[in-house]
């Protein structure tokens, strides 16, 4: 199995015939590995993501979408990049400068950090710490800090409301998200990502693999819903809510900063997809095709789901969202956790 091979930096060092025990070599190899994984994810999120989003939304809404620039409008991203980067960066009066400038960076970079521990198959995994899952959740949650910074520092009441909504929403949904993730940990008996993937490598019944989505579909559904809130897509796109609070925390951002904020959202959706693929869909497991391809297919599947929800489901109100989060999701995820613990305890 590929997952059992060494993490990327070590593999790289071995490949180049360098000494894996030297700190300097490992730092260098880690940087190269990080650059590789970062580029891989950026290709997916920043290049393919916006194009795919356009096409998917268009398919849902009976339109054609981009088709002028390049085959199937694929080069639209070039036009987008030129357009967005050449726009004036407007800094509104009275913004809280360091925080306002840092927020887009925090939003974009925190989500990217999470990919470090995701096993993508074919040995593509930067690090495999024993607390992998906790690390992923921690980095994903840090984006909320960026949202609050953006909302609070923008000196705009819409941004402010958006920032507050983001906090309320993330508080209400991170707990069910993590509790549901914890139920998987109980099954796998480890927080280590490679262990979780390995635990899903058996078959359940007949040809059905023992992915946790099949073992515990209830947890899977809960996690998918909580993930929608986590990445802020309909019906939970409340921190942005264009028709209510203009664009929420991103109202005052333009040009490069806007690109970063927007990119951060995309990476976040993909990170959500990566987590779901790893802990519920068997990670890179799949027949015939190489693991990395299967892994990408699974991430894009989750992306498709978020876009589907976005096109077809109305947005709930902020108070309803909080109610669903605290009174519904939290209770259900706790029940799920208890039940899993009992079942695993009895069987084991």
């Amino acid at each position: 199995m590929l997952q059992e091979s060494a993490p990327l930096p070590e593999a790289l060092a071995n490949l180049l015939g360098l000494d894996p025990n030297s700190t300097l070599v490992m730092i260098l190899m880690s940087l190269i590995g990080a650059a590789f994984i970062g580029s891989l994810m950026m290709t997916n999120t920043a290049l393919a993501g916006p194009w795919a989003k356009r096409k998917i939304t268009a398919a849902f809404t009976d339109r054609i979408a981009v088709n002028r620039i390049g085959p199937f409008g694929l080069l639209i991203i070039v036009a987008d990049a030129v357009r967005l980067l050449s726009k004036e960066l407007i800094v509104p009066e009275g913004v809280d400068r360091p925080a306002w400038d840092l927020a887009p960076l925090v939003i974009a970079s925190t989500a990217l950090l999470g990919f470090a521990v995701i096993p993508m198959g074919n040995g593509i995994q930067l690090a495999d710490p024993e607390v992998g899952l906790a690390y992923v959740f921690a980095t994903a949650s840090m984006a909320s800090v960026g949202l609050v910074m953006a909302g609070y520092a923008s000196n705009n009441k819409y941004s402010f409301l958006g920032g507050l909504r983001a906090v309320a929403q993330n508080l209400a949904y991170e707990i069910p998200l993590i509790l549901t993730g914890a139920s998987v940990v109980i099954f796998a008996g480890s927080l280590q990502m490679s262990e979780i993937v390995a635990a899903q490598s058996q078959t359940l019944v007949g040809p059905i693999p023992s992915w946790y989505a099949f073992v515990n579909p209830f947890a899977f559904v809960l996690f998918m819903i909580a993930n929608l809130a986590e990445v802020g897509r309909n019906p939970f796109d409340i921190p942005e809510a264009p028709t209510e609070i203009v664009a929420g925390y991103q109202t005052e951002y333009s040009s490069v900063y806007f690109v970063l904020v927007y990119l951060g959202e995309f990476i976040h959706i993909f990170l959500g997809g990566a987590i779901i693929a790893t802990i519920f869909l068997g990670g890179p497991a799949g027949p015939v095709l190489p693991g990395i391809v299967w892994f990408m297919i699974k991430i894009w599947g989750v992306f498709l789901f978020t876009q589907w929800a976005r096109s077809a489901v109305p947005r709930v109100r902020i108070d309803q969202l909080i109610e669903i989060g605290w009174k519904g999701m939290l209770v259900l995820s706790l029940a799920n956790l208890m039940l899993t613990a009992v079942i695993v305890g009895v069987i084991a």
Binding site: F60, T61, N234, P242, E244, R310, P314, R315
Partner: peptide
């Protein structure tokens, strides 16, 4: 109205316009 409640130019807005 769907645009206001759904929050984006979503399916129903486009269907109504179609």
């Amino acid at each position: 109205f769907a645009l206001d409640v759904f929050g984006d130019f979503t399916a129903i807005f486009q269907y109504a316009f179609r």
